[in-house]
Design a protein around this nucleic acid. Structure first.
Length: 231
DNA sequence: TATCACCATGTTTCTCTAGT
DNA sequence: ACTAGAGAAACATGGTGATA
């Protein structure tokens, strides 16, 4: 047996998740307050060790952590990056596989009671949350936000943050919120029709003190539709 | 040619007012 | 008090002309 067979020479392997949802304040990210050292009492992205006895693969590990923290088995999960170094965790050499998860407003509302006690939604401010977070998670969050903002330009991503049923006005409003700019209504509707990822719900109209709006749902809640050009 | 800003029109609901 | 009609409000949809 060589010294390298010893556990002390194996890297720490974890999955970390940047879990996003939409709140009235805009895009929000789920953070957990760490109970133990290192960084005890500080906020961090939710994450956990990979359990080789339980997790069939990396995505399964990510889904398990997500369910533990939110109670939600998200329909949309995407691997962002793998990061690893000797210095990112004071406990030793560590590898983290980072995932982005998108939760619909419905999921967040329905599973509010199932959310971990140490977890809280924090509104995104610029490239972070406006205060320092543990480990290298500020950099990971910045990376995740970059990926999301880039994808908003050419995919159905905002639709995955809305409730299961939504109107075109609500969808446009989410795009505008994430892009930080106003969109032309005509051009927006044309692009949505071309992208063909929405399905009108037959006979379902949103009634208010105005003309009723057609209610839509995503054709496929498990994957993003990509546009052939920017919105 | 695509995009954008603007405009016109259609639809529905709400509020106000006059008539019964 | 109740009802009907007019007008306003809000939003969906589609068209047009200017511009890059």
């Amino acid at each position: 047996m060589t010294t390298h067979d010893n556990d002390a020479f194996k890297p720490i392997a974890t999955v970390d998740l940047a879990i996003f949802s939409l709140s009235p304040a805009g895009l929000s990210v789920l953070l957990v307050r760490r109970a133990n050292a290192p960084f005890a009492g500080e906020w961090a992205l939710p994450g956990g060790w990979i359990h080789i006895d339980k997790d069939l693969d990396l995505e399964a590990a990510a889904r398990r952590v997500l369910k533990e923290k939110t109670g939600v088995e998200t329909p949309y999960l995407e691997q962002l990056q793998t990061t690893g170094s000797a210095g990112r965790d004071p406990r030793g050499w560590s590898i983290s596989i980072v995932y982005i998860a998108l939760l619909s407003a419905d999921d967040v509302e329905k599973r509010r009671d199932a959310m971990a006690e140490d977890a809280e939604w924090r509104p995104v401010e610029g490239d972070g949350v406006g205060f320092p977070i543990a480990f290298d998670h500020a950099a990971l969050l910045k990376e995740a936000l970059g990926r999301i903002r880039n994808k908003v330009e050419y995919s159905s991503l905002p639709g995955h943050l809305l409730p299961a049923r939504f109107t075109l006005s609500e969808l446009q409003s989410v795009y505008e919120n994430l892009l930080g700019r106003k969109l032309d209504k005509s051009a927006f509707r044309k692009r949505m029709a071309e992208a063909d990822f929405l399905e009108p719900i037959e006979g379902e109209l949103r009634r208010a003190s105005n003309r009723p709006a057609q209610v839509f749902r995503l054709k496929d809640i498990k994957s993003l539709a990509l546009f052939d050009r920017r919105i």
